[in-house]
């Protein structure tokens, strides 16, 4: 197997597995940069996958092959953003323990999803979606020699949307006044408040953005990888995105890099049979690799990663 062939086998599945993680991890960056812990990413993805699949099944007749998946992920993102309002309400307005509220979000999304699926379809699992995303060759870019076949052939538009969004989120957070306010609220809410920034409003927006991105991640996962919805459709991808965000040091591009790496690690266990030097590695090592590597990374092998200073603490006006 030549190097080029090997890269052609390894890179597309890595990108394929990474895309949902990138979307969701970017959502985590928004929320945590504003000072709100979001362990509910898993639940937001569940909600996204649920809405994405149901919308796809219901409105396939209306929107047809091309548009249904795109409208599905958009609707899923909007509904997840609304759903994440609960997390914002609990952690900003009601000053709840944010980790606990996130856990509740995870339970709630799964409960609602499976309950409604049973209600509407009479069974615990939906049918396969009518209009999933299909692999395509990106026009023009796939014609570039070497890079074209490896990166831009046999790929999904959603993957490139994810990577593009990572850059956009980076620009928003680090190059706009909005981003500066968002970060200031997460680092020192009192100082931000003194300067006339509405802390609660910023945090609500940030949490809803994380809901939007989590919904995108969940629905993209459902419409590219899972293709149906059941209680086990999303099993840990949200937590993995959370890890990617921390691994990426709360930075959009870092989170994207980490998500790509996790996608690569996940794809290894799937494609290892066809890669010569991986054939003899027991599968369990490849399965646990992303998790063990994250722990090692956190233990200081990638240098210190400091969370936003005010992460996890509700802001109470007038208290010091």
């Amino acid at each position: 197997m030549s190097l080029l062939e090997m890269l052609q086998t390894m890179i597309p599945p890595a990108l394929f597995f990474a895309a949902p993680l990138i979307f969701t991890a970017l959502g985590g960056v928004f929320s945590e940069r504003s000072g709100v812990v979001n362990i509910g990413l898993e639940g937001l993805m569940v909600m996204g996958a649920f809405v994405g699949v149901v919308f796809n099944l219901t409105f396939y007749d209306v929107f047809g092959d091309t548009w249904t998946p795109w409208i599905s992920i958009l609707v899923a993102a909007v509904i997840s953003a609304l759903f994440s309002l609960l997390h914002a309400l609990a952690s900003v307005t009601f000053r709840a323990d944010q980790v606990v509220s996130g856990v509740a979000i995870n339970f709630l999304a799964l409960g609602i999803g499976v309950f409604l699926i049973k209600q509407w379809y009479g069974k615990g699992q939906t049918d396969m979606v009518e209009a999933p995303f299909y692999t395509t060759n990106i026009p023009l870019l796939s014609k570039i020699p070497i890079i074209g076949p490896i990166f831009f052939s046999n790929t999904y538009w959603t993957t490139w949307l994810a990577i593009l969004l990572a850059i956009v989120v980076y620009l928003i957070i680090f190059k706009t006044p909005f981003g500066l306010r968002l970060r200031s609220v997460g680092e020192h809410p009192m100082a931000a408040d003194t300067l006339g920034i509405n802390v609660a409003k910023m945090r609500y927006i940030a949490v809803m953005l994380s809901g939007f991105m989590g919904g995108l991640g969940g629905s993209v996962y459902a419409l590219t990888i899972a293709l149906d919805f059941s209680h086990s459709t999303i099993s840990g991808q949200g937590f993995m995105s959370l890890a990617a965000m921390i691994f990426g040091k709360w930075h959009p591009l870092g989170a994207m890099g980490a998500a790509l790496f996790f996608g690569f690690a996940q794809s290894l266990s799937v494609i290892s049979a066809t890669i010569p030097f991986l054939q003899n590695v027991p599968q369990v090592y490849l399965l646990i690799a992303p998790y063990v590597l994250t722990i090692l990374a956190l233990a200081g092998f990638i240098g210190r990663a400091d969370a936003p200073k005010a992460l996890g603490t509700p802001y109470i006006k007038g208290s010091r």
Partner: peptide
């Protein structure tokens, strides 16, 4: 009634406990 109703109830109970400030 689908079994999952109870999962929703449990999730809401946690949510309310967490929001004890309310």
């Amino acid at each position: 009634v689908p079994t999952e109703l109870v999962d929703i109830v449990v999730a809401l109970i946690i949510f309310f406990v967490a929001s004890s400030y309310m």
